[in-house]
Amino acid sequence: MPLPSAPARKVRPLRGLTFLAFLKPQRSRRRQSSRNHRVAGLLFLLPGGLVITLFVIYPVLQSLWMSLHDWSFFRTTQDFVGFGNYSELLNDPRFWNALWNTAVYTFATVPVQVAIGLALAVFLVRTSWWSVFLRSAYFIPVISSFAIMAIVWRFILSADVGPTASWLRQLGITPVNMLNNPDLALLAVIMVGVWKNVGFTMVILLAALQGVPEDLEEAAVLDGAGPWQRFVNVTLPSIRQALLFASVIAVIASLQVFDQVYVMTSGGPLFRTETLVTYMYNQGFRQYRAGYAAAIVWLLFILIMAASVIQLKLFRYRDVDA
């Protein structure tokens, strides 16, 4: 009795990497032809690969190298300090203050931004002339220059020359200059951050809501589900991937917050709005400590990676198609 032959090896699909299929060795009689295809494929990858290497991979590795030096733009030779910049950072109260402010900004901004974005998306999901108008209105801040918008908000929030101050005075209320107040400045920056980004979240969730299958909604209605039950049990699970995407993007953007802080408060008053990126800017481009600034950026990089991985784990662990 012949021994059973070994089961045929299961061919695993490339799953998402099909564009690299040409790299897989082919056992066809047209081996020469397939080699030509591989060479051609590599040549097609070359321009993009060069650009990515030159403008992404090299700078990233260079910044890591800089963070290991007492790097100065003024010098042509740099002193190697190993992890000296990192150990100094961990003992730097300004770094911890910036990390705390960044964390507060992120934890305050992201949930509010996603919640308001979701509410707006639900409210504006049905297309009509006014919903189209409102969608555009809410999205305008997203496509506006943040630096310009921050200047506008500085004017609006000014307790002395802004319109808000004038109106409040007419009502007999003494205006408070939020941006110059150590206790309120971060709140003002958070408010403007939410205002700026909520339109982006709304558009992402709006697209997702429009893709929720109607038959699911109808089935839920037939089962006697009310509007809230349908929203919680049908709509939300259906847009979970969009919520994940919106949240991850919001967290990354919040951890990188720079421009509105730089323009609105310059990190003040008394460093109460200084974030990791504004501190990096201060060290790198005001005090010319490029190595130290690179170390800040790398810690931020690790922080963003960790936050993104945690979010993906939390949202995806029971996904049927994961």
Binding site: L54, P59, V60, Q62, F73, I252, G284, I304
Partner: peptide
Amino acid sequence: MIVALAAVCALVLPACD
């Protein structure tokens, strides 16, 4: 986006060149 942020400092050198 993450990569771009990490590259902020280092980009200065090629930019200067």
